[in-house]
Computed example of a mutant assay.
Amino acid sequence: MTGKLLAVKGIKFLFGLAIVITSLFPLAWMAVAGFKGKSEVLRSPFQFFPDMWDWTNYRQILADPAFVRTLWVTFAGAVVFTLLSLFINSMAAYAFARLDFFWKPLWWVVALMPMFVPGMAILITSFVVVSKLGMLNTIAVLIIPGLASSGQMFFLRQFYLNTPIAVEEAALIDGASRWQIFTKIFLPQSKAPFVVMGFGSFLAYWNAYVWPLLTVGDNPNLLQMQVYLAGFRSERGDDWGLLMAGGTIAALPTIVLVLIFQRYITTGVRIAGMK
């Protein structure tokens, strides 16, 4: 039995190792390719490591004011978008989980409907709306339209429904207002789901391409990272090593956030699996 158990554990370990290698290989290759020259990245036969490690591509891309500005503008926008999204959707989730108001079941259905509508299906109509509102080429057009999220509301509402009603009733008896209950009781216990939902919001903003291209494509001061990288070839030609260096630096913020909040992400995913 012991030998059989060890064999099962060994198979699980090898399977997990294969998944890790498969997942990390593209990222590792991109980072290493940043140390290669123009002719080395796509050289045949394939060679993973460069003939000589050279930091020129990383120094050059970091010395580019347009890249650095785009990196900071995108990061700042992603942080603001994430915080506002969590705040708005958590309030809506609390209202649907704990408050009673007129036609609540109907409004809950209406709130969930966007979850089943593909974003590309309403892309043109969304563009017309923000254009009529005069929001084009502003930071607001990148942040405001996507703040309300049916998925976040649904997930947080399910989480809030598990909070014992007795705790809330005791707070009401002690004279606490609904706002105090929300900020003092519900928000402090929401760290794990907030990290999971917040990381999803951050990634959605950071990886956005079509919407920024349509709405702020003419404003170099609001250029977003994915749009910058997509237009890299037309501006820099076939300098693949420089592009790989830029892509690696652009991936670092999300990697760092995963490493910082991995404990909460694991907890949040486990909570989601119990719903």
Rank of each mutant, 00 (worst) to 15 (best):
F194K: 05
A28V: 14
P45V: 01
A192G: 05
V68Y: 01
S201L: 03
R178P: 00
W29C: 00
I19V: 12
V32D: 00
P188L: 07
F15W: 08
T125K: 15
G37D: 06
P188D: 11
A93N: 13
V141F: 13
R236Y: 15
L252K: 09
E168W: 01
A95N: 10
R43F: 08
A192E: 06
V227S: 04
G10L: 14
G175W: 01
R178Q: 11
T163G: 02
D64R: 06
P253V: 02
A245K: 02
S131A: 14
L213A: 14
D238G: 06
L5G: 04
Y205P: 02
W55Y: 07
V216Q: 05
F154T: 11
G37Q: 06
F13Y: 13
A208H: 05
V68P: 00
L17H: 05
V258F: 11
F194G: 09
T266N: 02
G3M: 10
M91R: 14
S39Q: 11
V216L: 07
L83N: 08
A28E: 00
A18P: 02
E40P: 06
K275S: 12
V110W: 12
A28C: 08
K38H: 03
L252G: 04
F232M: 03
I21L: 13
I249W: 01
N207S: 13
M153F: 08
V216S: 11
V210E: 12
Y58H: 04
P50I: 10
M120D: 09
I165F: 02
Y58A: 01
T74F: 01
F154L: 13
V41E: 01
R263L: 00
Q60S: 09
R236S: 09
N137D: 15
A18R: 05
L99D: 09
W29E: 04
A7E: 12
F127C: 12
A170W: 02
L112F: 06
I124F: 12
F81K: 14
M1W: 03
G146F: 10
R69P: 00
T56F: 01
M1E: 06
G273E: 08
F182N: 11
T163N: 05
K38N: 10
T74R: 04
W211P: 12
A251E: 03
F154N: 08
I139R: 15
F182E: 10
A121K: 13
R98E: 09
P26A: 03
L6A: 13
A192Q: 03
V20E: 00
T163M: 11
Q180T: 12
R59L: 03
A192T: 02
F182V: 13
Q189M: 14
P212S: 09
A78Y: 01
T215C: 12
M153Q: 14
V196G: 07
Y58D: 02
W179S: 08
T22D: 00
A192W: 00
M135Y: 14
W107K: 09
L147W: 13
A245R: 05
R178H: 12
A95C: 14
K132V: 09
S23P: 00
I185K: 07
